[in-house]
Design a protein around this nucleic acid. Sequence first.
DNA 1: TTTCTATTTAGAATTTCATCTAAATACATT
DNA 2: AATGTATTTAGATGAAATTCTAAATAGAAA
Lengths: 94, 94
Amino acid sequence: MGFPETFKALSDPVRREILVMLKRGKMPAGEIGQHFDMTGATISYHLSQLKKAGLIFETKYKNYVYYEINVSVFEEIMLWFSQFNGGKQDGEKE
Amino acid sequence: MGFPETFKALSDPVRREILVMLKRGKMPAGEIGQHFDMTGATISYHLSQLKKAGLIFETKYKNYVYYEINVSVFEEIMLWFSQFNGGKQDGEKE
DNA sequence: TTTCTATTTAGAATTTCATCTAAATACATT
DNA sequence: AATGTATTTAGATGAAATTCTAAATAGAAA
């Protein structure tokens, strides 16, 4: 965990797309992989990067591994960004 | 511009530190470089990445190139992140 | 227990990135 | 015009990241 891994993890378009997919709820690795034209091994690599960054976590059921978004880390990142717009929040008036 | 370049630019610790430095106001390339143990050429490379991402912009005066934060791009990024915490803003109650 | 399905790990190939040195450009000053 | 200072560009190099194939692991189902 820590900002370096987090920002590194977010720098890849495939990983950002995975995060967007997971907004709707938890999903097993195989189903995530079906949305991409890559091998399961590559998807597994991306999932491990997201996990290492604390952006997602996994739970196991039967022979599936489900992945899920870790909301609290997104809150930390938002906080980092807010230093640049004067603490002003989305939708707030000037 | 576009998210891919923006997130890529943010993935490097040196570039994030440059952004933090620029919070206080515009600064010439040379002065930015003094804070790092790297050649001016490398700093110039990082500045070009940040500029390409739209995170900073430059203005020239005499033989100096001043760099400055582009706040509006940060607002776009915040908006992207807000999709993950249910649109809830920093400091907002549950 | 054997076989099947889901996922990860290991190792290799390729690409991209960060950094340096040296040279080029741009403008200022003398 | 000549020299000096600030910055960028070009090209090279080593390190890191992404991807694949093949093999390994884990658990389910037969």
